[in-house]
C-alpha cells in the first residue's frame, strides 16, 4: 500500500472521529451510542497500517489471500454493531410501550376528571 493511500485512509478515520465528536458536542448524537462509531473511526485510522499485521496474521492462520481476513474482521465488526443497535432498538421499543400506555391511561383519567368538573 502506498504512503498516499495510507494517509487518505488515516484522514478518513480522523474525519469520521471528528464528525462523531462534533455530533456528540452539539447534542445530535447520544454519547452511549457514539461509542460504537468512535470505535469504528479508530479502526479505520488503524487500518491505514493494518496490511502489515493482516499479512502476518493471515499467513499464520493459513489464509492464502490476506484481504479475506480483512473482510472477515470487517464483517464481524459490522455484525456486532448490528447486534448492538438491535439491542438499543429493543430497549427503545420497550420504553415506547411504557410511555404510550402511561400516556393513554393518564389521558383517560384527565378526561374523566375534566368531565366530572364540568358536570359540577
Amino acid at each position: 500500500m502506498s504512503i498516499q493511500v495510507r494517509i487518505i485512509i488515516f484522514c478518513v478515520g480522523l474525519g469520521l472521529l471528528s464528525l462523531v465528536f462534533g455530533l456528540v458536542r452539539r447534542g445530535r448524537f447520544r454519547e452511549e451510542l457514539s461509542v460504537v462509531w468512535l470505535f469504528i473511526g479508530v479502526t479505520v485510522m488503524l487500518s491505514a497500517g493494518a496490511d502489515v499485521v493482516l499479512d502476518r496474521l493471515a499467513s499464520r492462520l493459513g489464509i492464502g489471500y490476506p484481504p479475506v481476513l480483512g473482510f472477515v474482521l470487517l464483517f464481524l465488526v459490522l455484525l456486532f454493531g448490528f447486534l448492538y443497535f438491535s439491542v438499543v432498538t429493543s430497549d427503545l421499543k420497550s420504553s415506547l410501550k411504557e410511555l404510550a400506555q402511561q400516556t393513554a391511561l393518564l389521558e383517560y383519567e384527565l378526561k374523566r376528571l375534566a368531565d366530572k368538573l364540568s358536570r359540577r
Binding site: L96, K97, A100, Q101, T103, A104, L105, E107, Y108
Partner: peptide, 25 residues
C-alpha cells in the same frame, strides 16, 4: 365504552396489557 386511546400502535399484547393496567388501577 370507556376508551383508552394509545397514541401509537404497540401491538395486540401491549393493548391488552394496557387494559390489565386499567383494571389494576
Amino acid at each position: 365504552a370507556a376508551v383508552v386511546d394509545l397514541p401509537c400502535n404497540i401491538g395486540y399484547g401491549g393493548a391488552l396489557q394496557t387494559g390489565f393496567r386499567f383494571a389494576a388501577q
